[in-house]
Design a protein around this nucleic acid. Sequence first.
DNA 1: CATGGGATTGACT
DNA 2: GTCAATCCCATGC
Length: 199
Amino acid sequence: MSAAADRHRRALELPVVEAAAALVGCTITHGECSGLIVETEAYHETEPACHAFAGLTPRTWPLFEAPGLAYVYRSYGIHALLNVVVEPAGDGAAVLIRALEPLAGIHHMVERRGRTSPTDLCSGPGKLTQALGIGLELNATPLLGGPVALGPPPPGHDAEPVLVAGPRIGITRAIELPWRFCAAGNRNVSRPWPPGLLG
DNA sequence: CATGGGATTGACT
DNA sequence: GTCAATCCCATGC
């Protein structure tokens, strides 16, 4: 078994910031659709941008479960956003999946998204859930052996990806934390990073 | 019980 | 660059 083959399982055992970095290069699969994770963000209960900062509530309880659950919530009344719950039970932490590189089931993604550009299918946290058909009904389902599956890097992607870290997107609190991780040079990220970092 | 604010996107100027 | 759509739920009275 190569190191890449269980990178996703090892990521689930790490503290949330390290887990966010380690999950870049793993895969998300739902039904016939799958994509390579190219962008993530870490959220932890100790900082106010995290939903778990409010404590254990009817909305946030999955964040405090054992690692490996999906946390799916509605954003802006419209979009479903997918997170990977990490850290031991009792600690509220999760990794937001912000962008995927489409790998399989692309014609389903095109149907659901109503767009054909491959870099406009999964290049955002709301886009990728729409493309893969992931809705709120999948909240708190397991990512190992559940309907939405977290998987290892696919063939041809087993090298550790080069990462670019930066501030998280779209939040108003704890904006100083560099807890966003992107696969360097990948065109499927939700937003370009600052000029000059691409080399 | 009323209110306000989003971990966003797409359409438009 | 601006802005509306749309709804769950945390918060405050």
